[in-house]
């Protein structure tokens, strides 16, 4: 069972308290109704599924209930860092070689 640091609670808590909510940094268009079919396809259906670093959304479901973002390595399953919803993608990751 993983330990996940909630950036709002500022505490590492067991995985059981959290729920994954899919890939992060996929913004909903401000002009949703006017999106083209292609853009909507990208927004709704296309996900990256990388081997390695992934940015994803998690919710501290059984804690503060906040959604936040996490950087996780899909190979090692390690959480590299977590940050609050709305914050930009971190440019530097702790402990990850380029």
């Amino acid at each position: 069972m993983l330990l996940i640091r909630c950036p709002y609670c500022e505490e590492e808590r067991p995985e059981l308290e959290f729920r994954n909510a899919g890939e992060a940094h996929i913004a909903r268009s401000a002009n949703m109704a006017g999106e083209s079919d292609d853009d909507f396809e990208k927004f709704f259906f296309i996900r990256s599924n990388p081997k390695g670093i992934i940015h994803e959304r998690w919710r501290h479901m059984h804690g503060c209930a906040r959604f936040f973002n996490a950087v996780r390595d899909t190979v090692t399953d390690k959480f590299i860092m977590t940050y609050k919803a709305g914050e930009p993608k971190p440019s530097k990751l702790p402990g990850v070689a380029k």
Binding site: R28, R57, R59, A65, F67, A85
Partner: peptide
């Protein structure tokens, strides 16, 4: 609802 309220 929470998802949209908090993130979008």
């Amino acid at each position: 609802m929470e998802d949209y309220l908090q993130t979008e």
